[in-house]
Design a protein around this nucleic acid. Sequence first.
DNA 1: ACTTGCTTTAGACAATGTCTATTGTAGGAT
DNA 2: ATCCTACAATAGACATTGTCTAAAGCAAGT
Lengths: 138, 138
Amino acid sequence: MSDLLERLRGRGWRMTAQRRVVAEVLDGEHVHLTADEVHARAVAKLPEISRATVYNTLGELVSLGEVLEVSTDQRAKRYDPNAHQPHHHLVCAHCGAIRDVHPVGNPMADLPDSERFGFTISDVEMTYRGVCPNCAAA
Amino acid sequence: MSDLLERLRGRGWRMTAQRRVVAEVLDGEHVHLTADEVHARAVAKLPEISRATVYNTLGELVSLGEVLEVSTDQRAKRYDPNAHQPHHHLVCAHCGAIRDVHPVGNPMADLPDSERFGFTISDVEMTYRGVCPNCAAA
DNA sequence: ACTTGCTTTAGACAATGTCTATTGTAGGAT
DNA sequence: ATCCTACAATAGACATTGTCTAAAGCAAGT
Ligand SMILES: [Mn+2]
Ligand SMILES: [Mn+2]
Ligand SMILES: [Zn+2]
Ligand SMILES: [Zn+2]
C-alpha cells in the first residue's frame, strides 16, 4: 500500500506513524473493518495510537476517496479500501462476513421513470444477503 | 390501520393505548420514521408514552413482520409500515427524503455463480441515491 | 536547530439503542 | 362488578458508536 502513501504525500498529507499503520491495516481484498477493529489492529503495531486518531484518519481517507464507508448492518460503519473498483456487497446474515461482488446488468436502468419521483439519480447500492458456506455447515 | 390492530389482537397481542398510538403513527405511504420521530408523534397523542415503550413496540411489530426496519443512512433505523409489498428505496442525498420504489428485473439473477462464494442467497436490497426535486430547486 | 501549523491525544459529550427493576393494567376468571 | 395475574409500561442506568475540544506533540520547511 506504499503507492497509496505516496499518492497521499503528493496531496500534501503529512506523514505520521499513526497514519502509516492505519493505511497498513486497511490493505487487502474483501477488507471491511469497523473503526474499532482498525483501532485494535493498529494498536498491535503502534500501542499508543488513540481512538480519535483512527477516526480522524479514516474520515480523511474517505474524504480523499481512498476508502469507502460501507453500512451492511445498522451497527458500526465499515471501511473498505477497495475504492477504485465499483462493486456491491454480499453479506452473511449469520456471521456478518462480507464479500465484494460485481453483479452484471445496469440497476439504474431498472427503475422506471414513473418510479423516479422527479429525483436525479446518481447511484445505486446493492446488498445481497444470505448464509455463507461456513455458517451453512455449522 | 384498524385491520392491523385486529390482526395483532388475533395473534394474542394485548391491546394498550400505547400500542394503538404507535400503530396509528405508522399509518400511511412512504412512511419511514425513526424511533424518536415515532416517539415524538406518539407523545402528541398520548403525552405519557415512554421512549422505551416505543422501542419495545417497534421491535415487536418488526418481529411480527408488520413493520420493516430500513437503514438508508448510518444514522437511526427507520420503521416502514409497507411490509406486505416488497420494495426498494430511493433516497435524497441532500435532505434524506425516502420513496418506495419497485425496480423491474431480477437482481438475484444478476449475480453470477462465480461471484456467490458458496453463499445461499435469500434476499437483495437496493438503495437508489440522488437529489429530490425539492432540493434540486433550492 | 528553529519554527509553525498540522496532528495526536484523553476524555467529555452526543446520538441511538438496550436492559432492569418497579409499577401499572388488560383481559380472563369468578 | 371485582379480582388476579401475567404481560406491558416506565424511568433511568448502561452500552455502543461516533464527534468535539483544548492541550501537547511533532513533521517538514527554513
Ligand atoms: Mn467492499
Ligand atoms: Mn419503504
Ligand atoms: Zn456466515
Ligand atoms: Zn431532498
